[in-house]
């Protein structure tokens, strides 16, 4: 499996490690490539959109010509895991003209809706498809509102969605790449089988 991590900015190495771990647990090996330029995404089987600053990531994926390649990847039905800033960049509407959202996940988002860094938190979040709650880290996290038809809500905090699936894209407002637990990466790329945490 060839996994591309969009690497223009954000916690790239953490996602690279998590996808390697997930693949190994399923008896596969992942060849991980960092995507900082166009021409790499078309060869990837799966993509990861890391956390970081959505304004910076949005700007650089458009400048480098990576944005249209991500659109083609999703149109071809190939899996994507997008976390935090990744979710904002892929959303239908980030309600902010500083982010040129790609409209690949049919939700609108409120950037930094959980507050500033001092309001950032960790919590045990039950996720559809996982038998045990997931230790989730929320960093200046976005809130998902206005979930489109055909979008499945996988987890909530305070009745607001924090993980959704829209076709081949799994998107979370938290950071599954910050812990050793790769079950969310499993859900995104190996949906058939859960590996014990």
């Amino acid at each position: 499996m060839k996994a591309g991590v969009i690497a223009v900015q954000g916690d790239v190495a953490e996602h690279a490690e998590a996808v390697r771990r997930a693949a190994t647990a399923h008896g596969e090996s992942a060849e991980v490539v960092e995507v900082r330029d166009s021409g790499i995404v078309p060869d990837c089987d799966v993509l990861l959109m890391p956390g970081g600053e959505s304004t910076t990531i949005s700007r650089l994926i458009h400048r480098e010509g990576i944005a249209p390649e991500i659109r083609e990847h999703v149109a071809a039905g190939k899996p994507v895991l997008a976390t935090c800033a990744g979710l904002i960049v892929l959303s239908r509407d980030a309600k902010d003209d500083r982010v040129d959202a790609l409209g690949l996940v049919d939700v609108s988002v409120d950037r930094n809706a959980f507050g500033r860094q001092k309001d950032s938190f960790e919590a045990k979040v039950p996720i559809e498809g996982l038998s045990e709650p997931f230790h989730a880290v929320f960093i200046r996290a976005p809130l998902i509102d206005d979930v489109g038809e055909g979008v499945e809500t996988l987890a909530t905090v305070d009745d607001r969605p924090v993980a959704v699936r829209d076709g081949p894209v799994l998107a979370t407002s938290f950071h599954p790449e910050l812990t050793e637990d790769s079950r969310v990466h499993d859900l995104a790329f190996f949906p058939e089988s859960e590996v014990e945490a």
Binding site: A7, V8, D11, G52, F121, P133, T156, V162, L178
Partner: peptide, 26 residues
Amino acid sequence: PEATDLEELKRGTELVKRGFARMQKG
């Protein structure tokens, strides 16, 4: 999905602080 237990929510932990720094990378 099942609701998240808000009583168990933790702020200002080493993981949350170092996590913020990680998001600045690159």
